[in-house]
Simulated assay, not measured.
Amino acid sequence: MSHTIRQKDKLIARVRRIKGQMEGIERALETGSACGEVLRQLASARGAMNGLTAEVMEDHLQEHVVNAQSEGERQSGGQEMVEVIRAYLK
């Protein structure tokens, strides 16, 4: 069973909080809130997204690299992580 399935409820709750933050940013822009407030909300949403990404990355490494059932799974999991990190850093 995938780590994202085991933690599905927790991860979905975090996504919903991020969604709420994004909706708050949209409302702030629509109502003409001060740019400082919009920037604070953007920074908060970015931090939440980075935290979620880090958690899923860590779980992936634990499940598919550190605790891999086979060398093939370890190599595949490691390669997936390299690709994700490259995309993340673009």
Rank of each mutant, 00 (worst) to 15 (best):
K90T: 15
Q75K: 05
T53D: 01
A54R: 14
Q79P: 06
Q62T: 11
Y88N: 10
K8L: 09
R16S: 12
R14C: 01
L52S: 02
E23D: 15
E80N: 07
G77L: 03
E73Y: 00
D59N: 14
A34M: 03
M57K: 14
V56F: 00
G24F: 00
I85L: 13
H60Q: 10
Q7H: 14
Q41H: 01
M81I: 07
R17E: 15
R14Y: 00
E80P: 01
E37Y: 02
K8I: 08
S76R: 10
Q41Y: 00
L42Y: 05
E73N: 04
Q21T: 04
A54C: 05
G72Q: 07
E63A: 05
E37P: 00
T53I: 07
K90N: 15
D59I: 03
I85A: 13
V84K: 10
I85G: 09
M22E: 15
R27D: 15
A45Q: 04
I85M: 12
G78S: 02
D9L: 03
C35K: 02
Q79K: 06
K10G: 11
G24M: 03
G24E: 15
A43P: 00
V84E: 11
V82I: 09
A13R: 09
T31K: 08
R27C: 04
I12V: 12
T53Q: 02
Q21H: 15
E23W: 01
G77E: 08
